[in-house]
Amino acid sequence: MRAVPPDASEASPAAGVDPTPEQPWPTGHRFADRARARHAAVHELLAAGHSRRAIARRLRIGQNTVLKYADAPAPESLFHGQWQGRPSKLDPFKAHLDRRWAEGCTNAWQLWEEIKSQQGPAAADCPGRVP
């Protein structure tokens, strides 16, 4: 029988909480809610006396993932990496992309062409460009 991780709303504070240094992502963020739920499930099973290997089998996640969650004192300590406010090359175009997405244009290639035309001839020499 597979143990289901607890509901994310039980493992986290009320929705809409602003990010703080201790809690970089608010509830409702897909990664944050999943990490909080898995952390709670792993620690609940550890407290019940299950081995880390048994937890991995029960939750159908890798043993290294279980180790990561078991060793973390809080799920917020896992929140680090590429999604934390780093500048992006798309920052100057986010307003345009958000507007076009809201208009219903979800074709990435078309959006790329629009951005490229806004950048001028230097965009054609971009190393990431696919001919």
Results as ranks from 00 to 15, higher is better:
residue 1 M to G: 03
residue 2 R to D: 04
residue 3 A to E: 00
residue 4 V to L: 04
residue 5 P to Y: 01
residue 8 A to R: 12
residue 10 E to N: 11
residue 11 A to V: 12
residue 11 A to L: 13
residue 13 P to Q: 12
residue 13 P to M: 11
residue 14 A to N: 09
residue 15 A to H: 06
residue 15 A to R: 09
residue 16 G to W: 03
residue 17 V to K: 00
residue 19 P to T: 10
residue 20 T to M: 03
residue 20 T to E: 05
residue 23 Q to T: 10
residue 23 Q to K: 07
residue 24 P to R: 02
residue 24 P to C: 03
residue 25 W to S: 12
residue 29 H to W: 00
residue 29 H to Y: 10
residue 29 H to N: 14
residue 30 R to N: 14
residue 30 R to P: 13
residue 33 D to Q: 05
residue 34 R to E: 08
residue 34 R to F: 10
residue 34 R to S: 07
residue 36 R to E: 01
residue 37 A to R: 06
residue 37 A to S: 15
residue 38 R to L: 10
residue 39 H to N: 08
residue 41 A to D: 02
residue 43 H to S: 05
residue 44 E to W: 01
residue 44 E to F: 02
residue 45 L to S: 01
residue 45 L to W: 00
residue 46 L to G: 03
residue 46 L to N: 04
residue 47 A to H: 00
residue 47 A to C: 02
residue 47 A to G: 11
residue 47 A to D: 07
residue 48 A to C: 00
residue 48 A to F: 08
residue 48 A to L: 13
residue 49 G to P: 12
residue 49 G to T: 12
residue 50 H to R: 15
residue 50 H to M: 13
residue 51 S to W: 12
residue 51 S to K: 13
residue 53 R to C: 06
residue 54 A to H: 11
residue 54 A to G: 14
residue 55 I to A: 00
residue 55 I to P: 06
residue 57 R to N: 14
residue 57 R to V: 11
residue 57 R to E: 15
residue 59 L to E: 02
residue 59 L to F: 04
residue 61 I to S: 01
residue 62 G to L: 01
residue 63 Q to C: 10
residue 63 Q to V: 13
residue 64 N to G: 15
residue 64 N to T: 14
residue 65 T to L: 07
residue 65 T to G: 02
residue 68 K to L: 11
residue 68 K to Y: 09
residue 68 K to R: 15
residue 69 Y to H: 14
residue 70 A to E: 00
residue 71 D to N: 14
residue 73 P to N: 08
residue 74 A to H: 14
residue 77 S to L: 15
residue 79 F to V: 11
residue 81 G to C: 05
residue 81 G to T: 07
residue 83 W to K: 14
residue 84 Q to G: 11
residue 90 L to A: 12
residue 90 L to V: 10
residue 93 F to T: 00
residue 95 A to N: 07
residue 97 L to E: 08
residue 99 R to M: 08
residue 99 R to K: 07
residue 99 R to Y: 01
residue 100 R to S: 05
residue 101 W to G: 04
residue 103 E to W: 06
residue 103 E to C: 08
residue 103 E to S: 08
residue 104 G to F: 00
residue 105 C to R: 12
residue 105 C to F: 05
residue 107 N to F: 01
residue 109 W to F: 00
residue 110 Q to D: 07
residue 110 Q to K: 09
residue 111 L to G: 02
residue 112 W to I: 08
residue 112 W to D: 02
residue 113 E to N: 06
residue 113 E to S: 06
residue 113 E to G: 03
residue 114 E to M: 13
residue 115 I to C: 15
residue 118 Q to P: 01
residue 119 Q to T: 13
residue 119 Q to V: 14
residue 122 A to R: 13
residue 122 A to T: 13
residue 123 A to D: 02
residue 124 A to H: 04
residue 127 P to L: 09
